[in-house]
Write a protein that binds this DNA or RNA. Structure first.
Lengths: 297, 297
DNA sequence: TCCTCATGCTGCAATTTTGCAGTCTATCGA
DNA sequence: TCGATAGACTGCAAAATTGCAGCATGAGGA
């Protein structure tokens, strides 16, 4: 019988695609990772990876093993959770991946409250460019804009939010206020950098009016907001950003209104851990409050 | 994260109840087994076993872990099976536990045929006193007389067989032939040793007539058969033994006829391996042939 | 085209793991 | 009550695993 622990290493490499990366995640040396992978392959008599350029891809055998290895992992994690009583305890670490705007404007202001309710949960708020993938275990949970199609995930709809065009009063005073969507072509637009967009749901301008292109661009919604707020131009912002900034005005609110959904994505293995449920509940409350606030405000 | 391989050791100890025994099964030193068990317990922060006399019993935490560890094992075994192509290949080892009589008189004569059909399967026929337990992985499959109640097992009814009282013509010539069941009390009876009986289904004599006791006893049905065959007394034998011996005669066939079932029990993890299915199919055929033979014969 | 950076492999030393003896303890049977 | 047997724990040497340093290779950018 082969060493079951080698499956843990195998999973790491299969997910991160390089030995070095896997080694970091596993807190081992890349050499060790390589050697244990070789050992596993030998004892199974199968070639698990093919090296294409810098990265390793699973072979057919590798894919077959991967599914089973995930099952092993799942069982092992449940084992720890149950035996250590972790599944019942509101303690431990949760890594949550969110979009930058949501993290900055919705979650960050409420973190104090969360920590007071759950002092023993360490909540890491990750706003990497691109959502980290719970199915790759880069994060435990993620709030995403689209429902992921595959993976061992538990997905639930948190709610939706609206977006409008915003501009500062200073900008409108100097450049005038657009009356019709077509007027937008004559204005300075603020938006994302299309090549670096990490979710198709963020491609707002194309939806507002075909062919519309931003000239002031950033990968960061916060940078965009600051530009708009300081009178640089007109841009699409979520209401939970635009409405909070008293210096901003909605532009063409009757013509341009976008809606997006928030999806909460959790790895199946973790979905019934108390601490994960606590975070999920908090997220549902935050999004609920967000929607109530917009309605009444 | 703890070493997943330690779960393998844990399972071994949980099943065999002693370090030394587990060590033999795992092909490790008992010292190593003990130390890795300690390490696992420490990294989970739980006491897994309590020592009661010579044996180790699972604590509550241990029980919780056990179920998960079995899930890990199951996934790991599937992994090997699939990657090595073992699941499709008619090769490898199968350990089959059967009752001695069935093994000797039904299976052994057909082993040549099995081997010719499946030359790459090594079939171990185990006739230990008592059935080995597939759920403890002492055997891969077992033909049992009763349907086991629990365990991760796949159970199917193979068929039934009949038993009658038999005696040799020599015995009857010297001691006379019983005419009524009550006559049996005056005869020399051959049977099992009640204290050493390993399945309640083997307690035939009580079923024939209350209070009937054997004086010539053995734990082995083959020894009993030899005694009966050589004129030592009257005893219950399966028809597949008694009818094959031309020197034996059925006694009181209209009054005494017992029926027993054959159950094929396979560990769930192995049930869909080709080699295991091949053995199962062969067993079904053997039992079918046995029943046809009795009917027509 | 060259340079830089990161990956991944080989040799070596340090650490860890493992197995073997020997010892102690507990259970079973005479 | 006393051996006999088997299980489990401690010291020590052997073997394996691991990490580090150095080097080759290949991809991406200036």
């Amino acid at each position: 019988m082969f060493d079951w622990d080698d499956l843990r290493i195998f999973l790491g490499v299969a997910r991160s695609r390089t030995l070095a990366d896997a080694a970091r995640q596993l807190e081992l040396d890349a050499t060790t990772v390589g050697r244990r992978l070789t050992r596993l392959g030998e004892s199974l008599g199968a070639n698990l990876f093919e090296q294409v350029g810098g990265t390793r891809r699973l072979t057919e055998s590798g894919h077959a093993l991967f599914r089973h290895a995930e099952a092993v992992e799942s069982a092992a994690l449940s084992a720890v959770a149950q035996v250590t009583g972790e599944s019942q305890s509101l303690a431990g670490q949760v890594r949550l991946s969110v979009a930058e705007g949501f993290g900055t404007w919705v979650l960050a202001p409420a973190m104090r409250e969360f920590h007071q309710s759950n002092p023993r949960i360490r909540l890491d708020l990750i706003t990497a460019s691109g959502f980290l993938n719970p199915s790759k275990r880069e994060a435990d949970m993620a709030v995403m804009l689209a429902r992921p199609q595959r993976g061992r995930l538990v997905v639930q709809l948190l709610g939706d939010y609206r977006l409008h065009l915003y501009a500062s009063e200073a900008y409108l005073a100097s450049q005038g206020t657009p009356r019709r969507p077509a007027d937008l072509r004559r204005h300075v637009l603020v938006g994302y950098i299309p090549e670096l967009i990490y979710a198709p749901e963020l491609d707002y301008l194309g939806e507002v009016l075909t062919g519309l292109e931003a000239v002031l661009r950033s990968t960061s919604i916060n940078v965009q907001h600051q530009m708009i707020s300081h009178g640089a131009g007109i841009g699409v912002l979520p209401d939970f950003i635009g409405d909070r900034d008293p210096g901003l005005v909605r532009i063409l609110p009757d013509h341009v209104e976008l809606t997006r959904d928030f999806w909460l994505v959790t790895h199946s293995d973790l979905a019934n851990l108390s601490r994960v449920r606590a975070v999920a509940q908090w997220l549902r409350h935050r999004v609920q409050a967000l929607q109530d606030q917009i309605k009444t405000g």
